[in-house]
């Protein structure tokens, strides 16, 4: 038995993808930094509090709004300051991520 399991283990360890797959761990990392927004907009952007939820919103709209905050053209108490911390590329990733949360 032992002899047969060793090559299998080695094969799995040889590839991180294999390791992740066999264990149930995700094979590709999610955009961890999107969780920065969860403190105020809820885990995965889901919230019903006064700071609005952003899960499942249209991707283009999210991108547009975040860029407008960044440029200071959309009125805000705080988002204009936070949005300036992210590159346009990151904003596109955030928009994509939150648009897919249902």
């Amino acid at each position: 038995m032992k002899i047969r399991t060793i090559p299998l283990t080695l094969a799995l360890l040889a590839s991180s993808a294999g390791l992740a797959q066999a264990s149930g761990l995700p094979q590709t990392p999610p955009p961890y930094f999107a969780a920065n927004c969860a403190n105020c907009h809820g885990t995965d952007g889901k919230s019903t509090a006064a700071i609005p939820g952003i899960a499942g919103k249209d991707k283009d709209w999210l991108e547009e709004v975040l860029k407008a905050y960044k440029q200071g053209t959309r009125p805000a108490t705080i988002m204009h300051q936070l949005a300036k911390g992210y590159t346009d590329e990151e904003i596109a990733i955030l928009a994509d991520y939150f648009s897919r949360q249902k």
Partner: peptide
């Protein structure tokens, strides 16, 4: 890109 700041859509909720 994929980890620190990037992402694939496959990993939603």
């Amino acid at each position: 890109l994929l980890q620190g700041i990037g992402a694939s859509a496959a990993f939603a909720a």
